[in-house]
Structures are given as structure tokens and as C-alpha cells.
Amino acid sequence: MDDNLMEKVMEEVMKKMGDTKEVKKEAPKSSYNPGITEFVGTAIGDTIGLVIANVDHNLHGFMKIDPKYKSIGIIGARTGAGPHIMAADEAVKATNTEIISIELPRDTKGGAGHGCLILFGAEDVSDARRAVEVSLKELDRTFGDVYGNNAGHIELQYTARASYACNKAWGAPVGKAFGLIVGAPAAIGVVIADAAVKSANVDIVTYASPSTTSYTNEAILFISGDSGAVRQAVVAARDLGIRLLEALGQEPAPSSTTPYI
């Protein structure tokens, strides 16, 4: 075999080895299982789902959990909060669980936003685990109307029937249509909130700005009312918000997954 042919063969071998390494590097996080009973899975937004079958008695008291709930499901994320709460809302509809707490820590990995910590309470560990599984599965959908670029992000959420997670986190009326509108930086949030309420006859549940959002650079509007009106308001905010974000960033602001609203 002459030198030129040998070089070509070696180049092909090295190229294949490089391709294999690249595939391993980009393997999804969900493919890794540490092999411990507490682990349920991972999902978009640097999200981890966990479960504790029987919380330590002393810790249980300090966490102020209702004594009837021995098992807890846990959703924690570095990026996002709205998608996780909406996913948890679907989980409590589908399981025999209750939302114990929802916390929104500031987390700079999400750019202008924050992360989240959601706890489900259950009398049976299978219910807690199922709630976490449902939440993780729902995240691919609820991240669909989160749009972002290097300048910031906008986030829209909608449900025709709010349940206990939305109520716990945002005071949403249970059983009524509910929408969430987030703009970051907050200047964009203020404008799209105004556009939303001008576009449809909706009820404002509450409004939040940096001083009431763990000092994150976001303005947030929470709305309720007729399902068609709430959806119309959210869509109006989305359309304007994407245009403003793209103007600010001078680049596209694509969906994180696939839009669902």
C-alpha cells in the first residue's frame, strides 16, 4: 500500500472516530440514569425530576409538609418556571397529588429569568413519582411558546382550565381559562402586557415587575376569563413580543420546541 493510499485510509478512520465522539458528546441528558431510586428523569430547561418515598421525620417537620404526605415528588430547574408550573398543573389533574410548594429562585443561567423548585405531596410514592413523570413529559409542550435570543426572552402560557399549581403559584382561579405573559427585559414585558389587555376582554389576576420577581429583569402579566379571550390576549402579546425581541437582538427569536398556543 503506497503512502498516499495509507494517508487516505487513516483520514477516513480518524473521521469516523471523531464522528463517534461527537455523537457521544451530544447524547441527551435523559439517556443517563444514575441508578438510584430517587431519580425519575431529566428534561429541557436543565430540569431534574426526583422522588422521596418516605421523607425523614425531622426534615418533614422543618419543611412544614402536611403529616399525611409521607412521599414527595420534586421538580427542579435552572431555566424556566412558567413551563414547569403549567406542566405541574397538568400533573395534579392526572394524579392523586397536591402541590406543597412552588418557589422561584433567581438563576442567571436563564438569562433575565429564574429557575424553580416544585414539590408534590402524596400519600403513596407511586402517585408522587407519576406526578413527576407527567411534569417532565409535559415540558416539551409547555416550552413551545418560550422564545429567545441573546437579547432576552418572552414566554407565553395558556390553559383552558387552570388547576391547583397555577392557583398555588399565581392565584389563578381554579377551573377557569388562564394565561401567562412574560417579557424579558422588563421593558418588553410592559409593552406586551398592555397589548394583551387591549386586544381582548380579560381579567387581570396580577402583574409583576422586577421588584416582585426576585429582581429578575422581567415584567409579567397573569390573566383569566373566557377561554377564547384569554387565548387571543396571549397570542397578541406573543406576536408583538417576538418582533420587539428580534429588533433588540438583531437576530431571530425562535421557539424552544414547538409552539402550542
Score class of each variant (00 low, 15 high):
residue 119 L to T: 10
residue 94 A to R: 12
residue 136 L to P: 01
residue 193 A to D: 01
residue 19 D to W: 02
residue 58 N to H: 04
residue 64 K to C: 06
residue 250 Q to K: 15
residue 171 G to A: 08
residue 55 V to Y: 05
residue 249 G to R: 06
residue 130 R to Y: 14
residue 184 A to H: 01
residue 24 K to P: 00
residue 67 P to Q: 05
residue 89 D to S: 09
residue 170 W to E: 14
residue 49 G to M: 06
residue 124 D to N: 14
residue 144 G to Y: 05
residue 1 M to F: 03
residue 6 M to T: 12
residue 250 Q to C: 08
residue 225 G to D: 13
residue 25 K to H: 12
residue 216 T to M: 13
residue 168 K to S: 13
residue 52 I to S: 05
residue 27 A to D: 02
residue 40 V to E: 14
residue 251 E to P: 09
residue 28 P to I: 07
residue 137 K to Q: 08
residue 31 S to E: 11
residue 229 A to Y: 02
residue 118 I to Y: 01
residue 203 D to E: 13
residue 75 I to W: 00
residue 179 G to S: 12
residue 223 I to E: 04
residue 4 N to C: 00
residue 260 Y to I: 02
residue 72 I to E: 06
residue 204 I to L: 02
residue 37 T to I: 06
residue 126 S to Q: 08
residue 191 V to E: 15
residue 148 G to C: 02
residue 75 I to T: 05
residue 217 N to R: 14
residue 33 N to D: 12
residue 69 Y to D: 05
residue 180 L to Q: 13
residue 257 T to F: 02
residue 225 G to L: 08
residue 31 S to D: 09
residue 159 T to R: 06
residue 71 S to K: 07
residue 155 E to N: 11
residue 193 A to K: 04
residue 14 M to L: 11
residue 134 V to C: 09
residue 254 P to W: 02
residue 201 N to C: 01
residue 245 L to S: 11
residue 28 P to R: 12
residue 84 H to F: 05
residue 155 E to F: 00
residue 209 S to P: 03
residue 203 D to W: 00
residue 159 T to C: 06
residue 56 D to G: 07
residue 210 P to F: 15
residue 26 E to S: 13
residue 136 L to M: 03
residue 33 N to I: 02
residue 138 E to I: 00
residue 91 A to Q: 07
residue 51 V to Y: 05
residue 104 L to W: 11
residue 137 K to T: 13
residue 189 G to N: 04
